[in-house]
Design a protein around this nucleic acid. Sequence first.
DNA 1: GCGATAATTGTACACTTGTTCAATAGCTGA
DNA 2: TCAGCTATTGAACAAGTGTACAATTATCGC
Lengths: 217, 217
Amino acid sequence: MTVEATTRQRRRAPEERRRQIIEATIACLAQSGPEKWSLRQVSRDIGIAPSLITYMFATWNDLLVAAYSDLGERFGAQFSEISRREGLTARARLDLCIDAYFADEWLSADVAGAYIAFWTLGRSERRLRDVMDQFAEMKQRDLIPLLREYAAECRVDCDVEALADTFYFLLSGLWYEVAVNPDAVMRPGPRGQARRFLDFAFVERGASHSPHRNPLD
Amino acid sequence: MTVEATTRQRRRAPEERRRQIIEATIACLAQSGPEKWSLRQVSRDIGIAPSLITYMFATWNDLLVAAYSDLGERFGAQFSEISRREGLTARARLDLCIDAYFADEWLSADVAGAYIAFWTLGRSERRLRDVMDQFAEMKQRDLIPLLREYAAECRVDCDVEALADTFYFLLSGLWYEVAVNPDAVMRPGPRGQARRFLDFAFVERGASHSPHRNPLD
DNA sequence: GCGATAATTGTACACTTGTTCAATAGCTGA
DNA sequence: TCAGCTATTGAACAAGTGTACAATTATCGC
């Protein structure tokens, strides 16, 4: 991964370089963890001088906030897009959300490690925590209308907002468990656990028709 | 908090010193986070020479493993004890477990921060992850018989193991949310969310008698 | 082609880190 | 009381950290 800085780097547009640094930061944070992460290590990974990072991001924390915003925005946007996609039943969109939530793209060592690192760093850096809040709220907000639709589909009358809370925190808990401990066995897997909750909460209680189960996990 | 090391420290039994170092480690890890934590900072906090820590714990990681084991054992033992306490209904013990899970003792900045730090460090240190697994399994195992009793109390026939999974991950998710982000508002609070799930899963579906709600949160 | 702009570098600095090791001194038991 | 064990110290080390700053040089508009 480390690139030897034998010759001077090609000159690049600031935006391009910024993105490169951000991506390397996420990868490095994920691999080394926040306790070993360092600006210098990032610079070594992409073969640039440490001072170039300081030049692009005024300080240490600015880079972290930028990297986390980038990650969170990509995650949140995907989640939000799926929840509004047209031509699908609410349950189908919920299943897609679940798949997206636990997709390798987010659970790979590269990203999960970075997320956990950010939780950690967020404890001491207020700006990180603000970004964190913002995305959590967004995800939670997307969930309520989707579950409301689903309740209508199932013809059940229930406290959707309460169930959205529960579902959201269940997703968080499952994600954390898998992210922190990728090797641990969980039967069924996180997707199955999430779907089982939906079946339990919406399908089994209301109507009599059998649920359209998805045999994943 | 830092103690000036003007005079040489009183000589202490190794066990006593070990405990002191472990507690200082947890406190330091919680306050500074894993990225700023350092053996030297711990030594400064309790006013001993850094080399004394090396003398008591051969290496860096040994201290971390010891500290995490200590924390996890205390947490797990309390949880386990409550779940077996005699003379109480299953629901009363469940409520106590919930209270214990979200007690200030574990959610205070001092402990929650340390836990998050350990999750982080566990990603690169296998021994930490093993300890982590062990305690997670224990908690989950305590939960199943307790929920089985509760199902009997409520006279509902359901897949208790599946519900135990869900409940366990819900607790994890709630705990994480509060621990990472203590200022965030959550209505109802984590205790209320957990109790609401129990009501929803066990009480509302089976019998007709109204649930004995606990108005906390 | 040339010159100005700014992306990139190298060096330097003051600091912190974990660990080693010989020296020191508090405690225990005879 | 005093020797011996060992808990404790301080100095030292090599390595790593973030940032500052002046010097370079690639690139683009002219």
